[in-house]
Design a protein around this nucleic acid. Structure first.
Lengths: 202, 202
DNA sequence: TTGCGAAAACTAATCGTATTAGTTAAAATA
DNA sequence: TATTTTAACTAATACGATTAGTTTTCGCAA
């Protein structure tokens, strides 16, 4: 059996994803990855430029997969239902691919074109979902930021095991999303008040 | 001039905090820290057990400082005002001590007693603030988790430069907090509905 | 089928960072 | 002043990423 037979970029990324998801992004090293691929560490440099580039690629994969999940969840739904669905999809992605997601929030190079584009597509998706509320454009963008904060915050706290108390975490999530949705409706009814709001928020 | 004159744990922590806040937690290394303290790297091991322990101590400091900020903000305020105040304090802590905060969310040892206690005091503070709404105890805990998610999510996305669009970030924050507050009021008026909510959130 | 050139593996070496071992000097104390 | 302790130091080790240089394998054209 020849020693040649495998190893291309997609196989490397796949194994790297496995390691990151199962053992945590910090455990992902050139050495461990090479070992799992039954290759010597330097061999990997024939396919990629180094650990940083690898993590960057994982980050991009993570955001793309997040978009996929959310897109699937959004089709056929609108307004409140759509928000609940994409939120659940977001959390599901993080639970299924914690390492990939972690990479996507700790990317080495935030100026990467492909990464930015993938991120933008998520933003656009959420904006589309929010269209149903007919918010002023500026308010809609603030709401996208808000929902993203909620989803990222909840997911990452869950990942680090930050919810100590023994209380159903899925219920916490549902209530949080529903509370936010209730808030959107309230803001909808008073948009002008919020548009004039000064930095103090009063 | 004796070579003896400085260096105790608090001085080390102070300098480490400086480095982490100014250059990022990942830049904090035994080597750099030793250099800034004008000491050889091994000398630091007379005062601490290694880089992991150092980061753990920073994490604890971070949570304690977060509690301080929020406590100060909460005195003399109640309900909506109090929520706005502690939220702003949270964001302020993260902006002033990004490295410390980062450590507090990426600690090596989540089972550390002192760390857990510091975290618990933050939770208790928020619970106290939420007392004003007379929510059922379980709902109150869900709300604590929700607010924490919002604050952590927003702060960390801001820190990684994740808010791309040129739109006032402070305003996004105010709107987010106010939207959540509106949501709390709506949930208050329909607590039973939310208590029965199934995992699907419907 | 054979032999050439490219691709991709390998070994060996280098570098940076954390850490440990063992030594020594300074400070505290008796 | 002599002794003990503390905390610095130098030297050495370990490990991970990476680079240099070499060799093997594969696809393809003569």
């Amino acid at each position: 059996m020849s020693r040649r037979m495998k190893l291309d970029l997609s196989i490397i990324l796949q194994k790297a994803t496995e390691i990151a998801d199962e053992q945590g992004l910090d455990q992902l090293s050139i050495g461990l990855l090479a070992e799992k691929l039954e290759v010597r560490p330097p061999s990997l440099y024939n396919h990629l430029d180094g650990l940083h580039e690898l993590k960057q690629k994982l980050a991009i994969q993570g955001v793309k997969k997040l978009h996929e999940y959310m897109l699937q969840a959004a089709v056929g739904r609108s307004s409140d239902d759509a928000i609940r669905a994409i939120s659940k999809a977001y959390l599901q992605l993080v639970r299924e691919h914690p390492g990939l997601y972690d990479a996507s929030t700790r990317f080495p190079d935030a100026n990467d074109k492909e990464l930015q584009q993938a991120q933008e597509s998520v933003v656009q998706l959420v904006l589309q979902v929010l269209d149903a509320y007919h918010l002023q454009e500026e308010i809609a963008i603030h709401m996208v930021r808000g929902l993203r904060s909620i989803l990222h915050g909840f997911s990452s706290i869950e990942q680090i095991g930050g919810f100590g108390m023994p209380l159903d975490i899925n219920k916490s999530f549902s209530i949080l999303i529903n509370t936010f949705i209730e808030g959107i409706h309230a803001v909808m009814d008073n948009e002008d008040k919020y548009m004039q709001m000064n930095e103090a928020g009063e």
